[in-house]
């Protein structure tokens, strides 16, 4: 993503990061699935952000910059190849583009949280970026280094998988499979 890395006038960096902390923690949790590790990641992210000499001034670029710091910190402790291989695998999984229907009554903060834990890392991450981080499809694509269409398909599959996990056996396919419409 093209980020305008410009010098930010001196001000309390904590004040600038604070609005994003909850979203960063949600994203960190989606990556690690471990609350203690997620806390450490956010702390680590804040520390790196505080010590940065150049900080994006634009709000959207600043958010993406923070999330990237956190993601890099996470990947530093991971086997990058394994993560990328998992992401690639998720894009060609067997889920179709059928419309799935879940039971609304089963959707709650708790079931979503538990359901997210059962998703693949790539599915968790794309939901976290769009729904928790507030990224647009385009920004998420830039962030992940994939085309917008990949974000669109990955996200729709991720939500389908999440609904399936939440609803377990109660999820059922609609009687008529959707036809792909041309845009």
């Amino acid at each position: 993503m093209a980020m305008a890395a410009v010098y930010d006038p001196p001000r309390d960096p904590r004040q600038r990061i604070e609005p994003y902390l909850g979203r960063l923690f949600g994203y960190a949790l989606s990556l690690t699935q471990d609350r203690e590790q997620a806390r450490d990641l956010v702390q680590d992210c804040a520390l790196r952000a505080f010590s940065a000499a150049r900080v994006p001034a634009d709000a959207a670029a600043f958010r993406a910059w923070l999330f990237r710091i956190l993601r890099n910190a996470f990947l530093d402790g991971q086997k990058r190849r394994a993560v990328r291989a998992a992401a690639a695998h998720d894009d060609v999984d067997g889920l179709s583009d059928e419309i799935w229907r879940g039971d609304d009554r089963l959707i709650s903060v708790l079931t979503v949280r538990l359901g997210m834990a059962k998703l693949s890392p790539a599915h968790r991450e794309v939901i976290a970026l769009v729904d928790i981080g507030g990224f647009s499809y385009g920004d998420a694509g830039d962030f992940l280094g994939v085309p917008l269409g990949t974000v669109m398909s990955r996200l729709s599959r991720a939500r389908c998988a999440l609904l399936a996990v939440i609803s377990e056996s109660r999820v059922q396919s609609l009687p008529v499979a959707a036809k792909r419409a041309s845009k």
Partner: peptide, 20 residues
């Protein structure tokens, strides 16, 4: 409606976080 609820609930689950 289900998708909207799923998205809203995911956002609702964002927890407040305070730095050390």
């Amino acid at each position: 409606a289900t998708l909207s609820r799923l998205k809203a609930t995911t956002q609702e689950g964002i927890e407040p976080f305070a730095l050390a």
